[in-house]
Amino acid sequence: MPETILSKTVLDCAKLTTREINQQLKALASEGIEQVEVVNPAGRHNLAIALEHPITISFQGSVGYYCGGLCDRATIEINGSCGWSVGENLMSGQITVQGNASANAGASAHGGKICILGNAGPRAAISLKGATLIVSGNVGHSSAFMMQQGRFIICGDAGENLGDSIYDGQIFVGGTIKSLGADARLEPMTAQDWELLTQELHPLGLDAKAYEFKKIVCAQELYHFKAKDFSKWKDAY
């Protein structure tokens, strides 16, 4: 369809500075361009940062640190892996990574959805503030550290100190958990939880029932800390 070709724009990172790429993406988004393909990202940091209008961006290759950070309503697909802090402080919209993510995936993300169709490194969902982070593979140690709100769905295994110093929110793990952090506890899965997982995973081609999901929430034992309860937090990260 000619319309499809006309509304699709291609940006070549090899010819532009990072600032120019972000300025052009912002300009295209505010002009109402629906779809942009970004080629040759070559692991560059800070791509597609703080876009404030709906736009669909497809990165052809792996990206560096902070990809899609602070975005509001953008849809970003990364056809490759990503570096540290993908979707950091995401406000809304969706980021899908067709590969692995390094450390701090979804750090402090307020809203929207981040899907890692691979493994994520340490500290995934650190300080998550309301977004949904889905990892189809495993996550590293100290994931969901100081998580505050939102949902963190891990289909594979979780590393040490999962949910350490968690305030609120829900973590679901389909595989094994190496250890829980301070103030994180297991809670029985409900029919509602399974419904939620099915809803979230189905669009990614994943069957929630194929995993033995466990639910982790905050034990709330550190909400009102007293010095005599030192043992409750002495092993905190």
Binding site: A42, G43, R44, S62, G64, S81, G83
Partner: peptide, 11 residues
Amino acid sequence: VAIASEYRALL
């Protein structure tokens, strides 16, 4: 074997 701080260096 090549080791680097960042992926982009390997490229």
